[in-house]
Computed example of a mutant assay.
Amino acid sequence: MGQLSFFSAEARQPCVGDLAGLLCGPGQALGFARGRAARVSVTVDTHCRAAAVAAALAERGVQARTDLDEDGSVQVTTAFRIDLTGLAGQWLDGSRKVVPADFTLDGGALRLWALASGRWVETGYFLGLDPESPDTHEALRKALATSGLPSTLWTGKEGGPALRVVGRRRLERLAELVGRAPRGVAERTWPAA
């Protein structure tokens, strides 16, 4: 086994800042009480994925509830919390979602991004993006490249928008950064080399 990366999800303790990974994908932040509290929510495609996201949030000391949407998707939502205001403040410009100028991806954030919207496709591994925030896509592609994972932006109707990671070495790097699959996560959704 090779040396564990300093940026790997398994190399450090989970923290509230890891919730940035949900915002990389389809997650949303919402401020409340003039910036004194905030919450994060993400809509996922299955109950299993929702349970895995909720468990990952609990590991970070953040409790969340899950609600079934009319279309069969599941929304995972935290309560309004004081310790989420900094995260929301970095990711919001008014009500518009933005990527912080100094944003860097690490294993913890990548782990939550993969939990919320990652999946295997025939052409590689997709990390889902927020279709409602197209201005974030290029900044996230650059942040992913800076973490050693060059990707291409996929905007096709099926599975898009997403960042596509391909190549054995890149997929090995991604798998190393996100760590082992949490219990109950389907293999078709988790990065592996």
Rank of each mutant, 00 (worst) to 15 (best):
V40L: 03
V40D: 01
V40S: 01
S41M: 13
S41I: 00
V42A: 10
T43G: 11
T46K: 11
T46V: 02
H47M: 06
C48Y: 04
C48A: 14
C48I: 00
R49W: 08
A51C: 01
A51T: 03
V53G: 03
V53W: 07
V53H: 10
A54W: 09
A55W: 05
L57Y: 11
L57G: 00
A58G: 07
R60H: 08
G61F: 09
V62S: 05
A64C: 07
A64S: 10
T66N: 04
L68P: 00
L68F: 03
D69L: 15
G72D: 15
S73Y: 02
S73G: 04
V74P: 08
V74C: 02
Q75M: 05
Q75H: 03
Q75I: 01
T77G: 02
T77K: 14
A79S: 09
A79L: 08
R81T: 01
R81P: 07
I82Q: 14
L84Y: 09
L87Q: 06
A88V: 00
G89E: 05
Q90W: 11
Q90R: 14
Q90C: 13
W91M: 08
W91N: 04
L92A: 07
L92I: 11
D93F: 00
S95D: 12
R96K: 10
V98D: 02
V99I: 13
P100Q: 10
A101L: 06
A101I: 03
T104Y: 07
D106N: 12
D106P: 00
D106S: 04
G107F: 09
G108C: 10
G108M: 06
G108I: 04
A109P: 07
A109R: 14
L110E: 09
L112V: 08
L112Q: 06
W113G: 03
A116F: 10
S117A: 15
R119N: 07
R119T: 02
W120A: 10
V121S: 08
E122A: 14
E122C: 00
F126G: 01
G128S: 15
D130G: 04
D135Y: 01
T136G: 06
T136V: 13
T136I: 07
T136H: 13
E138W: 02
A139K: 14
A139M: 11
A139G: 08
L140G: 13
L140N: 08
R141A: 14
R141G: 13
L144D: 01
L144H: 05
A145L: 03
T146F: 00
T146A: 15
T146D: 15
T146V: 06
G148S: 00
P150R: 07
P150N: 11
P150F: 00
S151I: 01
S151E: 05
T152F: 03
T152C: 05
W154S: 05
G156R: 15
G156C: 08
G159V: 10
G160I: 01
L163V: 03
R164Y: 02
V165E: 00
V166E: 14
V166Y: 12
